[in-house]
Design a protein around this nucleic acid. Structure first.
Lengths: 348, 348
DNA sequence: GTGAAAGCGCTAACAG
DNA sequence: CTGTTAGCGCTTTCAC
């Protein structure tokens, strides 16, 4: 049980070989006799040697850490994704490290600077503010998979959830159950750049158009950052303004939860007076009172897809071969029907 | 806009000085004329130079990253803590990197190995399975603050929430509101090592003892990992076994949420038939139906305390001076009264 | 099959 | 005040 840090030269000494041979054995490179290999491994075990990732990286640029850059960890969404990605990564000898960008432009730019990103074998990045141009300018040096709401044409693999489609599904579900005045909690007008909010708003409008139901613009209310509190306040504002509604589509389950609470305070029954649908299928949504109908964006499949693409890129880079074209992958969403919408269609 | 990575020698060349001078200027070390300093900084700006943290670390062992080792990110608890710590760290030029240990012994041991820990300036670690001995054996080389449920005597600073006291407060609150048969959702018998569950269970028993109310052991039901699902199932088991109760203390807000849902399914009204208290004061607990009375462990103050202690240790180490004794700090909890317990005491 | 030399980008220690 | 030398622990290159 020697004290101090054991380094490769210690192992070399112990095994009676050179550092280089130790390095070769440890990295599973060919060109070492069975005998030597065994001696080295034994020395490694005896001394409890572990490579120093910092040194390896300085020299080889390699590491076993995958960076996950997320705007925040407030809700269960990114936390769950992180857990999922980490589990997948570990089956391949990597592990995931999470960094918050704070959802600000500066935060995101800082997080993708070469010196912050270099320690990672690969990067999973969910950009909120910055676009392909910034990313290109930042000169991202490590394999990356972008993740997010917006379509980001460019040189990076990109996995998106189907925001427009999922929102349309949710809205159509409400329309089919007889709702005609559907509040959109967290809705946002189409602006310069797409975001989760503008895309889901688009889905809401599309569904109305298809069904031939007009949208009363007063039903579209913003909800700052889609938290429970924001959802609560949005419904309260709606009620305060005297806008009547018989359905509510909240852009997130968290916001839906706040909306449910607000409806209870107002004295409106769910689903009898107002039917409610959320988006995300958080684990908790199944246990709300009433249980929440929601859009399941299939995050588990999404996580698998992300890790798949990223590891492919990492290997591709290690192999030093040609670089495949960027892939764009859109996950498909589905509606999970629960108590907050009527069990039976009430005509149409 | 030169391509490739700009290194310190490039800056030195550009500024007409040596690498060492560049290093001194960049690190704000004294001993550089105003003139030189200006020239260097200008060159840095012109070339867009940024230090390579890997190299710096290999040489100096220093970094600006603080590692936060948590068992999981399932609930809002650690996610919120991470956000809080990160915000605090950034005001001091550090940033927080989160790693999941998976709450397993192996996961925790792996996370604290020298090579995993070395990249950090400091460590915040919430151990679940491993104890002071393991930590000592692991030979933690970086300043660390332990965080957690259990009392961990030893060489490390330690910030704890008041599990026993908080649980006693919650239980006393229920007793004062007239509850006499209080289910303990997630309760666990005192075993070899303290854990969040055994400590809160102890508080529950203490409060009963003080009030002179006996505990019916059938009211103490385990709840695997204290999730919403676990809370739901625990109450259902209780009901299935025909155990009556007029109060419920859930070890976490998440479990309380599941308990509320189960009570609704059973047809018991909260707080009229059963009064419910949670623990954590999650942001969502205020928006549940009914709003949840809960124990607020004062996580924000806790985060400040943690960062405070850690940065002090980091500076201490940088200064190379004597090492101060380990500090143990227990945060104090309070009860936040909401709808899930009766607004007026009903005698006693 | 194995090893010696060189150096990744940076900084501590000392010399000037 | 500024520069030179050495070396952190590892891997790439190339010789044996």
């Amino acid at each position: 049980m020697m004290l101090g840090v054991v380094k490769m030269s210690d192992v070399a000494l112990e095994a009676g070989v050179s550092k280089m041979t130790v390095s070769n054995v440890i990295n599973g490179r060919p060109g070492a006799s069975e005998d030597t290999r065994a001696r080295v491994l034994e020395a490694v075990a005896r001394l409890g040697y572990r490579v120093n990732p910092t040194a390896r990286q300085l020299r080889a640029g390699r590491s076993e850490a995958i960076g996950l850059l997320v705007p925040h960890l407030d809700g269960p969404y990114y936390a769950h994704l992180a857990a999922r990605l980490d589990t997948l990564a570990r089956t391949h000898g990597y592990h995931v490290i999470i960094e918050r960008t704070g959802a600000s432009r500066e935060g995101e730019l800082a997080a993708v600077t070469p010196q912050r990103v270099r320690p990672y074998a690969g990067l999973v990045f969910s950009p909120v503010q910055i676009g392909t141009q910034d990313l290109h300018r930042a000169g991202l040096e490590v394999p990356a998979v972008l993740l997010g709401e917006r379509r980001l044409a460019g040189e990076f693999d990109h996995v998106m959830m189907d925001n427009v489609g999922g929102a349309a599904l949710a809205t159509t579900h409400l329309l089919e159950r007889g709702a005609r005045r559907i509040a959109l909690i967290g809705g946002r007008p189409d602006g310069g750049v797409d975001s989760m909010a503008t895309l889901r708003t688009r889905g809401y409008r599309n569904a109305h158009a298809v069904a031939g139901v007009p949208v009363d613009e007063r039903l579209v209310v913003d909800a700052a950052s889609f938290t429970t509190k924001d959802g609560y306040e949005a419904v309260m504002r709606l009620h305060g303004a005297g806008v009547a509604f018989d359905g509510a589509f909240a852009l997130t389950d968290a916001a839906a939860m706040g909306a449910l609470r607000a409806l209870a305070d107002i004295g409106l029954r769910v689903p009898d007076d107002v039917q409610v649908v959320g988006f995300d299928n958080d684990a908790e949504s199944e246990y709300l009172v009433p249980r929440l109908t929601t859009v399941d964006p299939d995050n588990d499949t999404m996580a698998e897809r992300i890790m798949d693409l990223l590891l492919r890129r990492v290997e591709e880079r290690d192999a030093g071969g040609p670089v495949a074209d960027a892939v764009e992958s859109v996950m498909s969403a589905r509606v999970v029907v629960r108590e907050s919408t009527l069990a039976h269609a009430s005509g149409r």
